[in-house]
Write a protein that binds this DNA or RNA. Structure first.
Length: 213
DNA sequence: TGTCCGATTGGT
DNA sequence: CCAATCGGACAG
């Protein structure tokens, strides 16, 4: 492990529970530039969050919690913020969400893309790449299910606290917030009626690690 | 129990 | 653009 890598890990400061118990649009924007970290027996992986989407409760037709619907799949959305809501789509693909707000407010933020910053070789192995190169580095984590595969996030982490020691979100001590935020409509929610036009997708302007421009 | 379908991905 | 793929939601 290189010196700068050790330095990176030592500068991480886990976000407190209070970060998550706030307005979901605010939390969404504030998650940009933060670091998602997962420590497993295979090693540590971490990525800088560059793209997210907000899913906001009973009034949002795109949200799994639309109309207050509570099922076995989405029950984590109804719990107090600061835990993981993980669901599966199209068979083998997982999506990772950060639950926000207080208990009974079923809101969450989907993490859609990361800039890989730590454990890239391990990410490449999990993604099934033969080798890691400058050409395929962004393909490690530029989609909601790609980043789950690279970070080894699956349903075994469903409902788990993001204040735990293995899966958490952190900021980098002393790092300046030197980016602009772009908002667009959310991806692949054509079924959501008028909600499909809400600009609740947020990206770090100019990042080449987002899922789509 | 049976049918339907997706907050995606990867390959044409 | 299009097919793969399968667990969860829901109707019966």
């Amino acid at each position: 492990m290189s010196k700068e890598n050790k330095s990176f890990l030592s500068k991480l400061e886990k976000l407190p529970r209070s970060f998550y118990l706030r307005d979901t649009i605010i939390v969404s924007k504030d998650l940009l530039g933060k670091y998602l970290v997962h420590k497993t027996s295979e090693g540590v992986t971490a990525g800088r969050i560059v793209e997210v989407e907000a899913y906001i409760g009973p009034e949002d037709k795109a949200a799994h919690s639309y109309n207050g619907k509570k099922t076995e799949r989405n029950r984590a959305m109804f719990e107090s913020g600061g835990i993981a809501y993980i669901f599966q789509v199209y068979g083998k693909n997982f999506c990772f969400n950060v639950v926000t707000q207080r208990e009974g407010m079923p809101e969450a933020v989907l993490v859609r893309a990361l800039e890989p910053v730590f454990g890239l070789e391990l990410m490449a192995k999990r993604r099934g790449f033969d080798e890691l190169s400058n050409k395929n580095i962004k393909l490690l984590t530029n989609g909601p299910s790609k980043l789950c595969q690279a970070m080894a996030i699956d349903k075994s982490l469903y409902g788990k606290s993001l204040l735990s020691n293995n899966l958490f979100i952190a900021e980098l001590k002393g790092e300046d917030k030197d980016f602009k935020i772009i908002s667009t409509p959310r991806i692949n929610i054509d079924y959501a009626g008028e909600a499909k036009d809400y600009r609740w997708r947020f990206l770090i302007s100019g990042s080449k690690f987002v899922s789509r421009k």
